[in-house]
Design a protein around this nucleic acid. Structure first.
Length: 440
RNA sequence: GGGGGCGUGGUGUAGUGGCUUAACAUGCGGCCCUGUCAAGGCCGAGACCGCGGGUUCGAAUCCCGUCGCUCCCGCCA
């Protein structure tokens, strides 16, 4: 048996074909029965004249919607049919797996979409929605385009371990796991390991992998496990080189997504993808601070030198208005709000060579030039109150010749959230993990 | 960890002190319908209004507690 995809049925007019999919709608009349079948390529109507085969008619009448079916019949042109002007005249039907009735909810009733938490309980039904299918096609292409860009520039892909032996930076946000007779932790970032690749002479690396954060955060943009997009590049002059890479890479990925799925995204999400122009605007943290002050936005006084989410949104609005850009690099953050391994400005030692990328008002990436000089790195760690014993393995990376380097980490689901203008990160991830969500 | 909001049939909502025997849509079950297509018509089942306590002649509605969800802040991608 050869399966024909619904999307290609018009190439099979007057042929007998086999299609497989889910029963989306059943219109069951006295004499005529119409089944709307869905596969990942589309919908088709299947017609059955009941008196021709009453037994089959009874089988159809008993079907619950969303049952998985294999159907064969003749494809005929029929201008009366609103669904593509063709239909399949049913010859054979096999119930591969019946769906219980009623369903917990109807994924195709757009007026009664349940709240996200309920849909997560039945995520496999939620994912049957066209919008979700498209979302994951977009994610696949997005990652593919990013890889294309990396490979064109001779990047090497790494897979760093997610089980780690010591709390690195602060330790507070680490999940502890039992590791035979001792304790281990789930990696909260591939940061140190991708820097090790710089010491290894890989020069340019990337990683797409899971990241774990034990933060009890209850917001629309946080998860305890998410997919990180990480990049590290050697022989840079400053964080500017990292930003130039980042914006070119994002522009390329956006363009690919728009080319392939622009129209579908417009239809399903009501979003007209804007491929960003280069360069993205850059704004120093102190400039951002004074602009916010002029706008009358009051930052909490205790957050000196930092931006709160409201400030991020306000400064993003400013960038949109002043520069017409959805993206903004906020650069040169004070050392007080940056980790010890960020390189400092030689002429302004209280500032780091770092950036945050704000997209659509949301922080989607953080990057920096890293400090690669061992003695300075050690001094900065001590200044931050870190015990050198815990990070000795990391400090060792810098003992035998490490090039100047920098990179960034970006949240895949956050990017997708911005790209498709989703209100909640739980909509943009296959299965959400949060403080209270471990299943399915 | 701190603060706000919400919790009503399977789902989405209305009802915010007596008009409620809790309404509407959708879904579900039954019957009807010669081709439907957002199918349609008729009938039916389904909610002790998250849970516990209180105020009141009277509570889905007000108060307290509790649980769940959610959003914001903190933290961050």
């Amino acid at each position: 048996m050869e399966r024909t995809l619904i999307g290609s049925l018009k190439e099979h007019l007057n042929e007998t074909v086999t299609v497989q999919g889910w029963l989306q709608t059943l219109r069951d009349q006295k004499n005529m029965q119409f089944l709307i079948l869905r596969d990942r390529t589309g919908l088709v109507q299947i017609a059955h004249y009941r008196p021709a085969n009453p037994e089959l008619g009874n089988l159809i009448s008993a079907l619950g919607t969303e049952s998985a079916l294999t159907i064969s019949g003749k494809v005929v042109e029929n201008p009366v049919v609103k669904l593509g002007g063709l239909e399949i005249q049913l010859e054979n039907l096999k119930v591969e797996s019946p769906a219980e009735a009623p369903l917990p909810f109807d994924p195709f009733d757009k007026d009664n979409i349940p709240a996200i938490d309920f849909r997560m309980d039945w995520r496999y039904l939620d994912l049957r929605r066209e919008q979700n299918l498209l979302l994951f096609k977009v994610q696949t292409l997005l990652e593919h385009a990013m890889r294309e860009y990396w490979l064109k520039q001779d990047f090497i892909e790494i897979h760093s371990p997610k089980i780690t032996g010591s709390p690195s930076e602060s330790g507070a946000e680490l999940f502890e796991v039992q590791y035979f007779e001792r304790k281990a932790y789930l990696a909260q970032s591939p940061q140190f390991y991708k820097q090790m690749a710089m010491s290894a002479g890989f020069e340019k690396v990337f990683e797409i992998g899971p990241v774990f954060r034990a933060d009890p955060s209850f917001t629309s943009r946080h998860m305890t496990e998410f997919t990180g997009l990480d990049v590290e590049i050697s022989w840079i002059d400053s964080h500017e080189d990292v930003m130039v890479f980042t914006e070119g890479w994002l522009q390329y990925a956006y363009q690919r997504v728009k080319d392939v799925y622009g129209a579908e995204i417009e239809r399903e999400f009501g979003v007209d993808i804007q491929v960003p122009a280069l360069p993205f605007p850059r704004m120093t943290m102190s400039k951002a601070y004074s602009i916010l002050k002029d706008m009358g936005y009051k930052l909490p006084p205790e957050r000196k030198g930092d931006l709160d989410p409201g400030g991020e949104r306000a400064i993003a609005d400013y960038a949109k208005k002043e520069y017409g850009s959805d993206f903004l690099f906020v650069i040169d953050w004070p050392i007080s709000v940056r980790p010890f391994y960020h390189m400092r400005h030689p002429d302004a030692p209280e500032l780091t060579r770092s950036f945050d990328l704000i997209a659509g008002g949301l922080e989607i990436a953080t990057g920096a030039q890293r400090e690669h000089r061992l003695e300075i790195l050690k001094a900065q760690a001590l200044e931050k109150g870190l015990g050198l014993e815990n990070i000795q393995y990391y400090l060792d990376f810098f003992r035998f010749g490490t090039p100047p380097h920098g990179g960034f980490g970006m949240g895949l689901s956050r990017l997708l959230m911005v790209l498709l203008n989703l209100p909640n990160i739980r909509e943009s991830v296959y299965l959400f993990r949060g403080p209270n969500r471990l299943q399915p």
